[in-house]
Amino acid sequence: MRPDAPLTLALYQPDIPQNTGTMLRMCACLGLAAAIIEPTGFPTTDRHFRRAGMDYLDHVRLGRHPSWSAFEAWRRESGARLVLLSTKARLSYTDFEFAEGDILLVGRESAGVPEEVRQAADAQIVIPLKNEMRSLNVAVAAAMVAGEALRQLGRV
């Protein structure tokens, strides 16, 4: 985690390069740290990833973790609270009290996160949707929650 970053956005085994590039660009623009938990479903040389992230990728502090267990060891050492964005959660992201240093975790676009990861989260939050809707694009969800967290922390 970046000492000057109020939050970290962690991506669990991302599998769509455009979404990953978009989220890393958001991190650069908002001053968030980022973490990628591997494996990813694409190489970082992927043209869609590079195009979505553009030259902003050079401005984001990015930690790469070769596995969930490596990420979890790093997180526990940092003492950061893990906040999972999940369609299965019950607590609305607007009712959650964010804190400096929180790690916002998003799952794979195709499958979310496994139960082991869900159980490791200190909190699980949801973006309430209309009943017939399943989920938002992961990059959109990450942006909404990051914006609310930064607002609560007085960073915007």
Rank of each mutant, 00 (worst) to 15 (best):
G31V: 04
C27T: 02
T87F: 00
T40K: 07
F96T: 01
L82T: 02
E100G: 11
A70W: 05
A89F: 00
C27L: 04
R64N: 10
V83E: 01
Q13D: 15
Y12V: 03
D15W: 07
T87Y: 01
T94E: 10
L30E: 02
L85I: 04
E77D: 15
S67N: 13
S86N: 02
A99V: 04
P43Y: 10
D95V: 03
P66A: 15
P39F: 07
E72R: 14
G63Y: 05
A28H: 06
M23Y: 08
G63M: 08
T87H: 00
N19G: 06
H65T: 06
L85K: 01
A70Y: 05
F96M: 02
E97C: 15
L24A: 11
A89Q: 00
R76G: 03
I16V: 15
F98E: 00
T45L: 09
T44M: 14
D4H: 05
D58K: 12
P66T: 06
D58G: 12
Y12W: 10
E77L: 11
E97P: 13
D15N: 13
Y56S: 10
K88R: 09
R64C: 12
T8V: 14
C29H: 09
T22D: 07
L57P: 09
E72F: 13
R50T: 08
L24H: 06
A52S: 15
A34D: 03
Q13T: 15
C29M: 10
G79N: 07
L7I: 05
L7W: 06
S86R: 00
R25W: 07
E97H: 15
Y93I: 01
L85V: 02
D46V: 03
P43D: 15
Y12F: 15
C29D: 11
G63H: 10
D15T: 07
P6R: 06
G41W: 10
H59Q: 12
D55M: 02
L24C: 12
E38G: 12
C29Q: 07
R76E: 13
R75I: 01
P17V: 05
F49D: 13
A80H: 09
P43R: 13
E97Q: 15
L82G: 03
H65D: 06
R90G: 10
F71H: 08
L82D: 02
T40W: 05
R25S: 10
K88I: 00
R50E: 07
E72T: 08
S78M: 04
P14R: 06
Q18K: 09
R61N: 14
L30N: 01
E100H: 10
M26L: 14
L11R: 14
R64Q: 13
F98L: 00
S78A: 15
C29N: 11
F71R: 05
P14Q: 10
L32Y: 03
V60P: 11
R76D: 05
G53E: 04
Y93H: 14
T20P: 11
A5R: 00
T45I: 08
G79E: 07
A70I: 07
M23L: 09
R75F: 00
F98S: 01
T20I: 06
L11A: 15
D15P: 09
Y93T: 00
T44P: 13
L82A: 05
T94V: 12
E72P: 02
F96D: 00
L84D: 00
T22H: 08
T22A: 13
R25T: 10
W68N: 12
M23P: 03
P14C: 11
G53R: 03
F71D: 03
D15G: 13
